[in-house]
Simulated assay, not measured.
Amino acid sequence: MKKAAQTSTADSGQAEGVKTRTRRRTAAAVARPAQRGTTVAATIYRDLRNEIVSLRRKPGEPVAEKVIAQDYGVSRTPVREAVLRLADEGLIEIFPQSGTFVSRIPLGALPEAIAIRKALEEATVRYAAKRATRSQIAKLRANLELQREMEAAQNFEGFHQADETFHALLAETAGYPGFWNLTQQVKVQVDRYRLLTLPVLGRVPDVIAEHSVIIEAIANNDPEAAAKAIDLHLDYLQVTIADAQKANPLYFTAPSEDEAEPV
């Protein structure tokens, strides 16, 4: 009975989330009519992707293509195009006899994605520590203040966006903004998992403190210290996978036999 009650509560929460998104998109459609052709498909793809990565669409939640098409005032063709792109990225699963759903977070894929991200970002901060200008360091410190503002407001999604900007600025400071583009491609599933960790008591202040150490190492032109700081910062993602999975078991898929268990 308890399990059934929990399921009912979860279903109600998902239904309310769907209603809220529908109201928002309907209002947006009235204010800004959808453009036709590939542009609207790209818009739907971007919006759906943002909703999935930000967890506004929960793992396992149904994706109703007909409703989305109605929200945007278009046929189902551009919606289907967007859904197929998201399926290719592993963010949506399509079951011919059952429906279309937001994919669950693949537990076994997270360690490798985190390892790739660490390698890319370690190289990034090493270059940044060698090349940073005073104005670039000022931008990093200004972004850190924005993170503190998001923390004070308890705005976790806003904090996540400020965090993303911080890492993009690191790549810009390094002189290789493409490093961040590559990182974004490999970390999409990590982002969904990471958002589950932000409400953990004390995590956001810790992130800000870790970012501060990275900035100071770069400001001191110390590549080794910067690399060590970014490694320590990203290690948290690895060691808390199991905790996040235990707290949100329905959001994750178990690793297959040929995938490594999270450490």
Score class of each variant (00 low, 15 high):
Met1Cys: 05
Met1Ser: 12
Gln6Leu: 08
Gln6Glu: 12
Thr7Gly: 13
Ser8Ala: 15
Thr9Cys: 03
Thr9Pro: 00
Ser12Leu: 09
Ser12Asp: 06
Gln14Thr: 01
Ala15Leu: 14
Gly17Asn: 15
Thr22Val: 04
Arg23Ala: 10
Arg24Trp: 01
Thr26Cys: 02
Thr26Tyr: 04
Ala27Leu: 14
Val30Gln: 05
Arg32Met: 05
Gln35Phe: 07
Arg36Ala: 12
Gly37Ala: 03
Thr39Lys: 14
Ala41Pro: 06
Tyr45Arg: 08
Arg46Pro: 03
Asp47Tyr: 02
Leu48Ala: 00
Arg49His: 11
Glu51Leu: 11
Leu55His: 01
Arg57Ala: 08
Pro62Thr: 02
Val63Gly: 03
Ala64Ser: 00
Thr77His: 00
Thr77Trp: 02
Val79Trp: 00
Val79Ser: 02
Arg80Pro: 01
Leu84Val: 09
Leu84Ala: 10
Leu86Asn: 02
Asp88Pro: 13
Asp88Trp: 13
Ile92Trp: 00
Glu93Val: 13
Glu93Leu: 06
Ile94Arg: 10
Phe95Cys: 07
Gln97Met: 11
Ser98Tyr: 14
Ser98Thr: 08
Gly99Pro: 04
Thr100Asp: 04
Thr100Glu: 01
Phe101Asp: 02
Val102Ile: 15
Arg104Trp: 14
Gly108Val: 06
Glu112Thr: 14
Ala113Thr: 14
Ile114Met: 14
Ile114Thr: 08
Ile114Cys: 07
Ile114Trp: 09
Ala115Arg: 14
Ala115Val: 09
Ile116Asp: 15
Glu122His: 06
Ala123Arg: 11
Ile137Gln: 09
Lys139Tyr: 08
Lys139Thr: 09
Leu140Val: 10
Leu146Glu: 12
Leu146Gly: 07
Gln147Pro: 06
Met150Leu: 08
Met150Trp: 03
Ala153Pro: 05
Asn155Met: 11
Phe159Met: 11
Gln161Val: 09
Glu164Arg: 13
Ala168Phe: 01
Leu170Pro: 10
Ala171Tyr: 08
Gly175Ser: 11
Tyr176Leu: 11
Pro177Ser: 04
Phe179Ser: 09
Asn181Ser: 09
Asn181Leu: 09
Gln185Gly: 08
Val186Arg: 12
Val186Phe: 13
Val188Gly: 01
Val188Pro: 02
Tyr193Ser: 06
Leu195Cys: 09
Leu196His: 01
Thr197Lys: 06
Pro199Ser: 05
Leu201His: 11
Leu201Gly: 07
Pro205Ala: 10
Asp206Lys: 11
Asp206Arg: 12
Ile208Leu: 14
His211Phe: 02
Glu216Ile: 10
Ala217Pro: 13
Ile218Arg: 03
Asn221Phe: 15
Asp222Ser: 13
Asp222Glu: 12
Asp222Pro: 08
Asp222Cys: 08
Glu224Phe: 05
Asp231Gly: 11
Leu232Arg: 15
His233Pro: 04
Ala242Val: 11
Asp243Glu: 15
Ala244Leu: 02
Asn248Pro: 07
Phe252Glu: 03
Ala254Ile: 07
